[in-house]
Amino acid sequence: MNIPKITKILEVKNEVKDIKTITFNHPEGVDPGQFFMIWIPGVDEIPMSVSYIDKDVKGITFRKVGDATSALYKLKKEDRIGIRGPYGNGFELQGNHILFVGGGTGVATLAPAVEYVVKNKSSATVIIGAKTKNELFFEDRLEKCGVTILISTDDGSKGFKGSATDLAQDILKKENFDSVLTCGPEVMMKILLDSTTIPFQASLERYMKCAIGLCGQCCIGEGLRVCIDGPIFDGKTLKNIQDFGVYRRDSAGRKVRF
């Protein structure tokens, strides 16, 4: 039932400054790309993509940006949170050679998908983009999977100097991939979509309230609900959505340009 189930935080891990991972017991299955609604009692309830998928334990990884994530950031092992979900469609993980492009905390959403494709004997190249090298995380984790990792930083402090999109465009010219999967700032994902013709999937983020397809808060395009019809959308669908990379809606339903 779609009601928060109270659970104790199993572990809290600092990834880098302002970014933490929280794990909790959740024996039910979750697909890469799906999300939970995380209730921080007395504060808010927010959507969070799954970043760790283990048999009984699942995790989320987030950056301290607003009231809810700041409150979540302060929580410790054994503190109680409410979980409902998983929600959404998850990635379609097909193809023998996949390019992943993660910008900022977007890599948290992609990591379980990368692990999944490697387990299923496909190969992957992962681009991790960040503003600066101190904000890079999950590099070690993904290296352990045996995928090719390419780093981009806006300031050039590590790897390619420039955006993850620029780096992706370079790689796409040199190498043939079956598909591109991306999660990160929407403007970045839009540029990536416009620059490729191979199968494309992007994970979108919108302000959410019900997460079960009723309230309409997270709708884009012609009534596509990010909570149910997404959060993963393919390139063909996104090309017909005028919102994509242009605007989102705030909690009052007003358009806010990216």
Binding site: M1, N2, P4, W39, V43, D44, E45, S251, A252
Partner: peptide, 28 residues
């Protein structure tokens, strides 16, 4: 006027129905 509505949780499912307090969010 535009109105943001209440913080979440604003909607949950119960055994025989849906309970919500969105708080009249709207763009004005």
């Amino acid at each position: 006027q535009p109105r943001e509505g209440y913080p979440n949780p604003t909607l949950i499912e119960l055994e025989y129905g849906i309970l919500n307090a969105m708080g009249l969010p709207n763009p004005g």
